[in-house]
């Protein structure tokens, strides 16, 4: 048990109890509620020994995503992290940590880069990989059909489950209806909803996972 407890992913500074390895989380909330920052913080927190990080940046440049990650306290060793950016206006980046795919609609391309980075980390001895996907809403907006998006999400969540990883995947409820979100949610182990109250406070709520605080929590 104690070994299991040590292996759990911890989220310092967020009202989320540790989760077991192999957990895929859907993080749902509008941009103005700081939802992306929450998803990034969940990847930034915790011990970093023998861990790697892969971020899929469909909604921003790779450089901006790395800055946002550093901005929330992300401390991953650059040798063990990478970003996949999807169609940057300036073409390929010089940053060795950034891989570029043509467009957010190119799910095959994103998937291949993802697998390649993942296999690379695995080969270098990284035991567990944290994954951030920003965002499912962007992928859905660009995709011509829904089926490839499910296929892509199964690919990511399958890798996380089989290798004791952690994934936080962002979705924006103001861009998708609730039916679509719950359909996507089926592929995940749990869901973190993020919102900003009228008074400007930030709240989150965890659903679908055991031993989590009940209802909306301030953070």
């Amino acid at each position: 048990m104690s070994q299991d407890a040590q292996r759990r992913y911890q989220f310092e500074g967020l009202p989320i109890e540790p989760v077991r390895p192999g957990t895929n989380l859907l993080v749902a909330g509008p941009p103005f509620a700081g939802t992306k920052a929450v998803a990034l913080r969940m990847l930034a927190a915790g011990g970093l020994t023998e861990e790697g990080l892969v971020l899929v940046a469909a909604d921003d440049t790779g450089t901006a995503t790395l800055e946002a990650y550093a901005g929330v306290g992300g401390t991953f060793d650059r040798a063990r992290m990478a970003v996949i950016e999807c169609g940057s206006p300036g073409g390929d980046s010089d940053d060795g940590n950034i891989r570029t795919v043509r467009s957010p609609s190119d799910l095959t391309g994103i998937g291949i880069e993802f697998s390649s980075l993942y296999e690379g980390l695995y080969t270098e001895g990284v035991e567990r990989v944290r994954i951030g996907l920003f965002s499912i809403s962007t992928l859905l907006m660009y995709a011509e059909e829904f089926q490839p998006v499910y296929r892509f999400l199964h690919t990511i969540t399958g890798r996380v489950r089989s290798a004791d990883g952690l994934a936080t995947c962002l979705i924006d409820p103001s861009a998708q209806d609730e039916q679509t979100i719950s359909s996507v949610e089926q592929t995940f182990d749990g869901r973190v909803d993020v919102r900003r109250t009228d008074d400007g406070d930030y709240r989150l709520r965890v659903r679908g996972l055991p031993d989590q605080p009940d209802g909306w929590q301030e953070f």
Binding site: V101, R102, S103, S105, D106, L107, T108, G109, G111, I112, S115, S116, E119, A143, E144, E145, Q147, P148, R151, F152, T155
Partner: peptide, 12 residues
């Protein structure tokens, strides 16, 4: 991948 965007496959 230009003509194959929606396939989704693993790469090893």
């Amino acid at each position: 991948t230009a003509a194959f965007e929606g396939l989704v496959a693993e790469y090893l």
